[in-house]
Design a protein around this nucleic acid. Structure first.
Lengths: 195, 195
DNA sequence: TCAGGGTCTGACCGATCGGTCAGGCATGCT
DNA sequence: AGCATGCCTGACCGATCGGTCAGACCCTGA
């Protein structure tokens, strides 16, 4: 065997991304990944210190973009923060669909690990921004529903083109977010439906 | 020790509900549940055939209500189906918050088990109804985002009173769902339909 | 008094998990 | 040739998982 260094390293990373996206982090064993690559489990652990390090390297790009989005949020309030949070998170979720799928349902445990220490705080700030920094329950609930739902949708609709998914999600967020004091800039659709 | 039959049975059920809601189904061992009850793991397996049977008995009430909602959906189309699906699912998710939390992120694996064979089909029909039986990507994406997001929100906001959470979620769904009476001219029968 | 059934348990099982370790193999430098 | 280094592996480890089993304990009815 004995492939070039970076080659095997990358193959393991790609195989892990594929498996994690299907069966989740906990649901995927190092043996599974090794089988998909065609090497031994020991080889996987030769290239990566442990299973968590493998995940961390896999999530690094997405986390970097999330950090950037968090930076853009500082200082903004109200409708401006809502708009930045909405557009930023939709774009992030669409671009990193597979990485998002990996974390499905494993957030609580994974966030305790040191490599992902700050994600919880960042996503809290993101949710707060999407709620227009309002403390009304309706606004906070809507923000959580949208963030969680978008993640799930991106993980599920793997076959829809990026721009189409992004447009549909953005339109949904704009009409679903609770407007802060000033109304959001969206075309007045047929909102008047009595019940 | 030797408590009455139904007592221990119920205690195990309650302990399992508590643990599952926090650490998930896979993340909770029979040992964990036994420890919380104050009995041995063998006792848990004396009262329940296996771990899956314990989960099935725990989810039975919620699944029953889900089936009822599915029945109410048959025959309804368009805006009527949307309204029934929205109100029904919001109510279901709020009432069975803890049960919903158990399934967080473990749907794919759990749905393969025979005890939960039909849930996938039912939730597909529910999502279809919430989308107004439309095949437009925007409508289908919005329906998925809302259903997944509501589940997540109900699992997270454990401290908000039922009626307040229900009202906020219902308001969100009503302004977020794609209206079905769009000016598209498509025959009402050549659409998708379940087999 | 004793038999029998319901309740509960410790000890144990095979499987699988993440992770370690000594050593084999190919290559390249001196 | 001899040696070092990078890549890879089989064998193994302790821990934990879901699940089984023989038997102890207690209550009740004959």
């Amino acid at each position: 065997m004995a492939r070039a260094v970076s080659e095997t390293h990358g193959e393991i990373l790609a195989a892990a991304a594929r498996r994690f996206a299907v069966t989740g982090y906990r649901g995927t064993s190092l043996q599974d990944i090794a089988r998909e690559v065609g090497c031994s489990k020991a080889t996987v652990l030769y290239h990566f210190a442990n299973k968590e390090a493998l995940l961390a390297e896999l999530m690094a790009p997405a986390i970097g973009v999330l950090r950037d989005l968090d930076d853009q949020l500082t200082g903004r309030t109200g409708a401006a923060a809502q708009e930045v949070a909405a557009a930023g998170f939709v774009d992030l979720a669409v671009r990193f669909r597979r990485e998002i799928a990996v974390l499905r349902g494993e957030f609580p445990e994974l966030l305790c690990q040191p490599a992902f220490a700050h994600i919880q705080e960042i996503s809290d700030r993101l949710r707060d921004a999407l709620a227009g920094h309002s403390d009304r329950p309706g606004a906070r609930i809507a923000a959580l529903v949208l963030l969680a739902g978008i993640s799930e949708a991106c993980a599920e609709f793997a076959d829809i083109p990026d721009d189409e998914l992004r447009a549909a999600l953005l339109a949904l967020v704009r009409r679903a977010v609770e407007p802060v004091d000033a109304p959001l800039t969206h075309p007045p659709t047929t909102e008047d439906k009595d019940s």
